[in-house]
Amino acid sequence: MAAEAEVTGEHIKAAESVFNVPGTFMQIPKLMRYQFSVYLQSRRFYAMISIIVVIGALLSVVVAHFRPSFINNNLAFYGSLFAGAIPVVIVLAAVFFGGDAIAGEFQNRTGYFLMSVPIRRATIYVAKYIAAFLASLAIMALYVVILLINGVYYFGSNAFPWQLGLSFVLSIAYLAAVLGTTFLFSSLFKTSAYGFVMTVVLFLFGFSLLEDLMSLVVKMEPWMVISYASGVMGDVFSSNIHWGFTGLTTTLTTRGPGGAIFRSTSYTPGVGEGVLIMLAYFIITAIVGLFRFERQEFS
């Protein structure tokens, strides 16, 4: 018996060396942890922190110096400085962390390193998404901390409106949608620059332009545009919050020279509607992006 074990020793050693590859749901948090650490050690993370610190410092100095009217009302203060700035912070974070998340794996050839492991493409996509989401959330949190320090200075530590909390929750939903869209663009190309440019152009100009065209020219509610939905982050600070799942249409009629009548129509998304639009963007972009990445070849 002992002799038999000795003879087959090499085979026993080989058998012991086979490890159980973790399941997909175990691999996701493992890979996410490494991807997050890669983000934390990247120059772009520190660049993003620097941008937020500069924006926060400018905001603090300008508000302190010019003392605009909103510093007399905590709701107006947080509404202006949180809802006014957080969509831009989110888009910047999404571009920084998601713009080349997938395309970069092809362009920088790091994908070949990951693909040498028994891992599903979907695992890579989801783990990278969660890592980028957490990195973006850290950046958003930094901005919120700067804002809260200012708020405490002007209103004390007991004057945080509940609307700020709700708006923050909505901003997280917006981040999920924006990052999902960014990942989708990134998965369409094998060159990082295309993903970056597409995201920047669409989120900083494209969607706003489309929203204006639909509401002003076509005269229909731009419910399919993500930037329209992002309005709910600011709307929750208004005195009469529209909670519904449909948009509010307001038509303003004015009389011009010679008695001509001008009608302008504006649309306001309901909070429920805004959340649904963001959720739809997140789900649709995630499905399409995942499908696209599953079919991408490392050629």
Partner: peptide
């Protein structure tokens, strides 16, 4: 893919490793 590559060591086309 996962099951088939479980016991395989792969080196294809000089991959890059995350520089950080």
């Amino acid at each position: 893919r996962k099951k088939a590559l479980a016991e395989v060591g792969l080196l294809i086309e000089t991959p890059e490793i995350y520089p950080s």
